[in-house]
Design a protein around this nucleic acid. Structure first.
Lengths: 164, 164
DNA sequence: TTACATTGGTTGTGCATCAAACAAACGCCA
DNA sequence: TGGCGTTTGTTTGATGCACAACCAATGTAA
């Protein structure tokens, strides 16, 4: 069963090592929505990295920065709720953005426990540069879909997100 | 600019804290395919966890286990290439599956550097149980889509994955 | 006002990911 | 047969994310 009865080196690489030929069996995976969703997300993530370089921002960080930009003064917890990540996770996220000089943790005027987050001038400048590039990249991701299909696609994604 | 000119506690929570009302501005995010893709993926991930409990397998681990099941004896590197994760990442992934008794690292008969991975009997039994449940869960994710829409959706996802 | 519940941020743990560097093993070729 | 480049698995260090436990600040109700 372990396909190891041949001898020549060529055979070992070409026929007995299916991985080298990209001929691995995938079983039920290709028919699963989840598998294809995951693959699309991975592809998007990687090309996103490429599109925003040399800024080195992840899609998640981009979302966080957008939310801070659009809602100045919000707290880490509210931000986490909005973008769907845990508030304890948010600590390290903001740590990194703050250490890069993009985000400022100002004391909240109403609540001494929380911070009022805002973009630094550098963060604002970076986002002004980044947003159009991210939008262009996003268009590139669906360039093989007609405008009508693009609308359907986003609609499907939203309906799947809601389907718990 | 920092919306902190009001006074009453009620105001602070109800009007000055948009997060509490779910009324945070989202800026350009909702129109980005990537944002919606990401959200759908998060939703799927969480409901997947729920659907396979108490087995405690992530979508990524499920993919790895399927590939091992369908391609007995493949190496960690080939497996990583197939599922799109780095071979250094694969070390810890297999470590965990092996420590749970699901996967066996057998010595490769041709190559003393590599392992021939296969499922243990426990791993096979678990997958026999898990695969139908994952397929049912997958159907549940798209239950709000008509069969035709489901086909379109998977088609769109594949085209997006290919669009580098 | 005091006691209890809730909230905000932090720390610690664990998982998943990649890049870089390395030793052992392998393959090719002179 | 030997040497050299390549491949495999590993380790280390970094980022990213989740959850539980914790403490301090805040809110609320008796």
């Amino acid at each position: 069963m372990t396909d190891n009865e041949r001898s020549t080196p060529a055979d070992r690489r070409s026929r007995l090592r299916p991985g080298k030929n990209g001929k691995l069996a995938l079983g039920p995976l290709p028919d699963l929505v989840g598998y294809n969703l995951r693959k699309a997300q991975v592809a998007l993530f990687q090309s996103f990295q490429n599109a925003v370089s040399p800024q080195d921002v992840t899609p998640g960080q981009f979302g966080v920065l957008i939310m801070i930009r659009e809602n100045e003064g919000l707290s880490q917890s509210d931000l986490g709720t909005a973008v769907g990540i845990d508030r304890s996770t948010m600590v390290a996220v903001i740590d990194r953005l703050e250490s890069r000089g993009l985000v400022v943790r100002a004391p909240s005027p109403n609540d001494r426990r929380s911070y009022a987050l805002r973009l630094s001038p550098e963060g604002q400048a970076m986002m002004d540069d980044l947003i159009p590039r991210v939008q262009a990249h996003d268009q590139g991701m669906v360039k093989d879909l007609t405008p009508e299909e693009q609308g359907q696609f986003i609609d499907f994604l939203r309906r799947v997100s809601r389907a718990k």
